[in-house]
């Protein structure tokens, strides 16, 4: 009756709310944890210590090189047609403006196609993207590539509508990518409200002038660590079921949702199994990735370091899409493996989280999934996830202890059963 015992302990028993309370203590103590920052270093030391105190095995730090970019003072002031302070968040890896800022007329576009059509008007201007929100995967390309596309046509800066379906004048940050053959221009996100207002002004033929100031700095790559802990398998200790979340976050809010929740339910999975006195046949390995936000940097180096033992990896699991009300798992793997996962998900009927969806790879596990290792990620109610994503609003206040209990139960039942079954999942 192991699945029921896990659910009872996580949801109703002594471990109730534990992942929430651990996460609250962590984020209130450390705060946000940007790649390369002192805060992230402190967070890793903190986790190294508490995982040992929790009695987990083989607690270790695996060094990796990560980007180090720091936000400086930043502001955007509309000067024409009226004075208005524009809320901005500079994007990761953006260059700074000169100290006096960049003052220029604004060109508003709604798509890259429109920008290319108006390329001759863009020279010397600040390009404002007011692209509609379709979905995250589709729309995030404006944040990733907005500066490059604007730089190609001679713009002096880009301001990008935040990637969200809902806003209370809240800018959302994120990483962006320059291209080596394109002039680098400062780039930041603005709120949906300001993007729409400038689009309305522009459509009326109103001339808009903005002064943008950004004090960002990029430093050489620095050393960080993936944090690892295990429950060593009883029968096939060399074989691994990997559960994970990422420890780094953005430098705004607390990173409680992205991805504190995912990291802490992954820790909770090992704690619950240990508390129940269980030891699965194969090793259950917790990995808390570093530097996911700049593009899965810690995970890529982990893959390079460990891919020689890929035949021992049973499944890679990552929770990085919130820890709200769970609905089940997303899974990538063979039809035979999917059939087995479908059976395992039935163990979660008591908490109504039995669904199995497609596309189980996340940023940090995708390297393994591309090589044919089964991959799973938590699927939960993300209807509000992107409201808070990469904003000052990503705090403990958006987390719910009872929902985290349920997520921990899903994560633990699935990872334990896969780790304890006689056979590995078919590739």
């Amino acid at each position: 009756n192991i699945a029921k015992a896990i659910i009872n302990l996580a949801v109703y028993g002594n471990a109730q709310n534990r992942s929430y309370e651990r996460l609250a203590r962590f984020v209130d103590t450390v705060g946000p944890r940007l790649s390369g920052s002192k805060n992230l270093e402190m967070a890793i030391k903190y986790m190294f210590s508490v995982l040992q105190e929790d009695g987990l095995e083989n607690v270790q730090l695996e060094p990796v090189k990560v980007p180090h970019w720091e936000r400086g003072e930043e502001s955007a002031m509309m000067l024409a047609p009226r004075n208005h302070s524009i809320a901005i968040l500079g994007l990761g890896s953006s260059i700074a403006t000169p100290p006096e800022g960049i003052t220029a007329e604004v060109l508003v576009v709604t798509s890259f196609d429109e920008l290319h059509k108006k390329a001759q008007d863009a020279k010397g201007k600040i390009v404002v993207y007011n692209q509609p929100f379709v979905n995250y995967e589709e729309t995030v390309k404006y944040r990733l590539q907005g500066a490059v596309e604007a730089g190609k046509v001679g713009a002096v800066a880009s301001l990008i509508r935040s990637i969200t379906s809902f806003s209370i004048n809240s800018p959302h940050t994120g990483w962006q990518q320059y291209q080596s053959n394109v002039p680098k221009i400062p780039t930041a996100c603005i709120s949906v409200e300001d993007a729409e207002m400038m689009a309305r002004m522009s459509s009326r033929g109103t001339r808009i002038v903005v002064t943008l100031k950004m004090g960002a700095r990029t430093y050489p790559d620095t050393v960080s660590f993936n944090t690892v802990a295990e429950i060593v398998g009883s029968k096939y200790p060399e074989q691994v079921v990997l559960v994970s979340g990422h420890l780094d976050s953005w430098d705004v809010g607390q990173g409680a949702m992205d991805d504190g929740g995912g990291a802490f339910i992954s820790w909770e999975a090992l704690s619950l199994i240990k508390d129940l006195g269980l030891r699965p046949k194969r090793t259950l390995r917790l990995v808390l990735w570093t530097a996911e936000e700049p593009g899965g940097v810690g995970a890529e180096q982990y893959y390079q370091l460990h891919k020689g033992k890929i035949s021992n990896f049973d499944i890679v699991m990552e929770s990085d899409s919130g820890t709200f009300m769970p609905m089940g798992l997303a899974f990538t793997g063979s039809d035979k493996a999917r059939a087995i996962l479908t059976e395992i998900m039935q163990l979660l009927q008591p908490i109504n989280a039995t669904n199995l969806y497609e596309n189980g790879g996340e940023t940090d596990t995708v390297y393994w999934v591309r090589d044919g290792i089964p991959g799973a990620s938590l699927r939960d109610d993300i209807s509000k996830y992107f409201w808070f994503h990469h904003t000052q609003g990503d705090t403990m206040t958006v987390q719910d202890p009872s929902q985290m209990n349920l997520c921990a139960a899903v994560w633990t039942v699935v990872s334990y059963v896969i780790a304890d079954m006689e056979e590995m999942l078919p590739r």
């Binding site: 699945a3 035979k336 087995i340 059976e343 163990l347 039942v413 059963v417």
Partner: peptide
């Protein structure tokens, strides 16, 4: 009559289902 590959898989899968049911 020897089991076909599909029969073998079905047989193995039934065993796996029983194994998983043992956790419930």
């Amino acid at each position: 009559k020897p089991l076909s590959q599909d029969d073998c898989y079905q047989h193995a899968f039934e065993e796996i289902k029983r194994e998983i049911a043992g956790y419930s």
